[in-house]
């Protein structure tokens, strides 16, 4: 049995040079939505170290099956399994955390009132799913490969194929939303949203490799996507408030 991520203790500080900065002119909308003043930074408190917990009893049978969870009839597109583990920065699995995903359909169209792209809606594709990591931090979804699509930013900007991930940890301060990209997609290095991330190494950490052993022959390809959440300090010299 692998040692799992601790659920108490102060959170590792976020590395703000690794994450995208708030102000990224290549992604135009960020220019008026980025705070202009410095973040007030200090160690995490109980408000960030605690967080909501979600039980498996809230999950429906098809919540992690985006091919069937909208109408029960199969969605159109390439069938793929997306699987991986949720880990903390110490490399330990994070069990029992909620993972929510959303995505465009196989044609690159979202089921949303703000999306008016030419590609049609698929009547059998809702575009969202959720699951809870198991006792080893593992998760998996069955879905269709999302299409690339154009978006108004530059004159001809396209989003690479991607799946949005929303992940909880054991503390509210670990809360993370990110996007998974697909190995080999030539639109990745051209995307202004991808390029908000400062380093190639950090970008690479969001690109899921094709996993020929994770799929099902004659049925579905697989992509492996591990997610890393903020770790927790566990030194015996940590200042602890009496009673905590």
């Amino acid at each position: 049995m692998t040692e799992t991520s601790p659920t108490t203790g102060p959170l590792f500080p976020r590395d703000r040079f690794w994450h995208p900065p708030a102000y990224t002119p290549g992604y135009k909308t960020s220019m008026t939505r980025a705070p202009s003043r410095p973040l007030v930074a200090t160690s995490s408190t109980l408000s960030e170290e605690t967080g909501p917990a979600f039980g498996r009893d809230m999950l429906g049978e098809r919540d992690n099956n985006l091919i069937l969870n909208f109408t029960g009839q199969p969605a159109i597109g390439e069938r793929i399994i997306v699987h991986g583990r949720v880990l903390d920065q110490s490399g330990r699995p994070v069990p029992n955390v909620l993972i929510e995903i959303w995505q465009a359909n196989a044609g690159g169209r979202y089921r949303h009132q703000k999306d008016g792209y030419l590609a049609p809606l698929d009547p059998n594709f809702g575009g969202c799913g959720r699951t809870i990591s198991d006792d080893q931090g593992r998760y998996e979804f069955l879905t269709v490969r999302p299409g690339a699509y154009p978006w108004p930013n530059g004159t001809n900007d396209w989003r690479p194929m991607h799946i949005h991930f929303s992940v909880f940890g054991s503390g509210f301060g670990q809360r993370l939303i990110t996007q998974m990209y697909f190995e080999g997609d030539p639109l990745i290095p051209r995307c202004p949203i991808v390029r908000t991330i400062p380093s190639q190494e950090a970008i690479d950490s969001l690109v899921a490799p094709l996993d020929m052993n994770g799929g099902i022959p004659m049925d579905a390809l697989a992509y492996k996507f591990d997610i890393v959440l903020r770790g927790r300090r566990q030194t015996m010299f940590e200042n602890r408030l009496e009673g905590l």
Partner: peptide, 12 residues
């Protein structure tokens, strides 16, 4: 490990 880098939640 490094934390997974954040990406925008987007309009959808």
């Amino acid at each position: 490990l490094m934390e997974s880098p954040s990406q925008t939640a987007g309009p959808y």
